[in-house]
């Protein structure tokens, strides 16, 4: 074999190995989570875990009902998506097609800066400024509520959605645009009816990645949502998410205790949720490609 072929072979197998390692990691993480989570169900019924309305881990006897946490996570995530998806996609459309060139560069680097703000800093802003502001605006009893978390999370997911959607829009072939103009379309018609549908798969991928970030985010929600394990009636009430529960309580559990296994079960629930979201994203991507 020539030296060129040998190095090619080495590089090829290294790349193959990296791919396999990632798959191995995912499987190992799942098995690890699964093993410890299942240990809980030796003494605690899965029905009481999934549909229990009380999360009281240090009471005697403890109660591990994740329904309030699950609903809390859903509220915060849904709120964040409603805020960040339209804003993010619109911003991407503006940057890709409307903005003048000089502004485009400034906007893009600003979005990168936005992406690099640590979540704990956003959480701090939420505690000292956004929370009190929302409290006074909506006349709430406390600013530590789901909406504060949703707003900050929307802020965090926005850069992902904007940059990936913008990428997808820019890579739509120029001929599509020209054809639309040639048929007499206005700029808005071209953007809405031609660009957006042809870039749909990329935009959906961006949105899904953004949602993934929102669901998994921990620090911000732990700092600003109040963490009250109650089933919230609206997004303007304090609530507790799955991630904040794990982060807030993992430190104090002795490994091997029931509480410890319960937190792993919460982690497993979270893992399954993100898995389903990714699956939906994949399926919709496949469909959009066809």
């Amino acid at each position: 074999m020539s030296p060129g072929k040998i190095s090619e072979y080495i590089i090829e197998s290294l790349i193959k190995l990296s791919g396999l390692i990632i798959v191995g990691f995912v499987i190992l993480i799942f098995l690890f989570l699964f093993r410890d989570a299942v240990s809980l169900f030796g003494g605690y019924s899965p029905g009481a875990f999934l549909f229990g309305r009380n999360w009281l881990p240090i009471s005697e006897p403890p109660q591990f009902g994740i329904l309030p946490l699950l609903i809390g996570s859903v509220y915060v995530t849904a709120g964040a998506i409603i805020i960040c998806v339209p804003l993010g996609v619109a911003a991407a459309m503006y940057i890709a097609e409307v903005a003048p060139k000089s502004l485009k560069h400034i906007l893009k680097s600003l979005i990168e800066i936005l992406a690099s703000i640590p979540s704990v800093v956003l959480g701090f802003i939420g505690i000292v400024w956004l929370g009190p502001f929302l409290k006074n605006t909506f006349g709430l009893t406390t600013g530590m509520c789901g909406l504060t978390g949703s707003l900050l999370l929307a802020f965090m997911a926005m850069p992902t959605i904007i940059s990936i959607s913008e990428d997808a829009l820019v890579s739509v072939p120029r001929t599509f645009k020209e054809a639309a103009y040639g048929l007499g379309a206005t700029k808005w018609q071209m953007l809405w009816r031609v660009m957006l549908p042809s870039a749909a798969s990329g935009i959906i991928a961006g949105i899904m990645l953004g949602i993934g970030r929102v669901i998994g985010e921990t620090m911000v929600v732990m700092m600003v949502t109040g963490n009250a394990p109650v089933i919230p009636e609206s997004i303007l009430q304090p609530l507790r998410t799955l991630t904040a529960t794990i982060a807030g309580e993992m430190g104090e559990t002795v490994s091997g205790s029931e509480h410890y296994y319960a937190l792993f079960a919460v982690g497993l629930a979270l893992f399954i949720i993100t898995f389903i979201i990714n699956l939906i994203a994949d399926i919709s991507l496949q469909k959009a490609r066809k």
Partner: peptide, 28 residues
Amino acid sequence: SKEEFSPKTLLLSSSQAIVEEVSNNPGA
């Protein structure tokens, strides 16, 4: 006793966070 904190009680992750909220909230 089996009494519990009201589930509406906010669980904050540090004492400083409690100071922040109390100083901002007249009902806290």
